[in-house]
């Protein structure tokens, strides 16, 4: 019996198998690397560090934080400009602000009640942060909290400063 034609058919089929395997590898790699990394926690920590550097230097609070009557409202209102913070994001994201931060100052006599408060950014992100523990909403926003102690300019009063930063940017960090 003449089976010479059989080897030619099998040779073609070999290339078909190769293409199937190559396609499978392509699908695996693209499905894995198409998912972005979520860097919002690191971004939040960097924001906290920048805010802390603006508020406190060499163990003492920034003198511009205070005026004759106590904490300066003017410094609070112009906080972004004073501390060189920029909330602008790339155009592909929605027009709404993607960041929020809140700073609370506590006097050493009472570390439970905030003496002064500064907040800037999108207030709506706070609600997302409060329900972050639910699995359904854990990727919506990412919040980072940290705190430190600092003395006032004269070194007489000790303050606890708590900083909370919340970042949305869900489209860029989650798929």
């Amino acid at each position: 019996m003449n089976n010479k034609g059989g080897s030619k058919i099998i040779a073609m089929y070999w290339f078909v198998i190769l293409m199937i395997v190559a396609g499978g590898i392509f699908v695996m790699v693209s499905s894995f690397y198409n998912h972005p990394y979520d860097i919002r926690e690191i971004e939040g920590e960097i924001m906290i560090n920048n805010i802390a550097n603006c508020l406190s230097y060499e163990g003492k609070l920034n003198s511009e934080l205070f005026d004759e009557e106590g904490f300066s409202q003017e410094f609070s209102e112009n906080f972004l400009e004073n501390c060189h913070l920029n909330f602008e994001v790339e155009e592909s994201l929605n027009e709404e602000v993607q960041y929020y931060f809140e700073i609370d100052f506590y006097k050493s006599e009472n570390l439970e009640i905030s003496t002064f408060n500064i907040f800037k950014g999108n207030l709506n992100l706070v609600a997302g942060y409060e329900i972050q523990e639910e699995k359904e909403y854990e990727r919506e926003v990412k919040g980072v909290e940290d705190s430190f102690f600092s003395l006032d300019e004269k070194g007489e009063e000790l303050y606890l400063i708590k900083i909370l930063t919340i970042i949305k940017k869900t489209e860029k960090n989650v798929k």
Binding site: S31, F32, H35, P36, Y37, D38, E41, I42, R139, V174
Partner: peptide
């Protein structure tokens, strides 16, 4: 594996 969010933490 890709569905698990790849979070970068310090």
């Amino acid at each position: 594996l890709a569905q698990k969010t790849k979070t970068v933490q310090a």
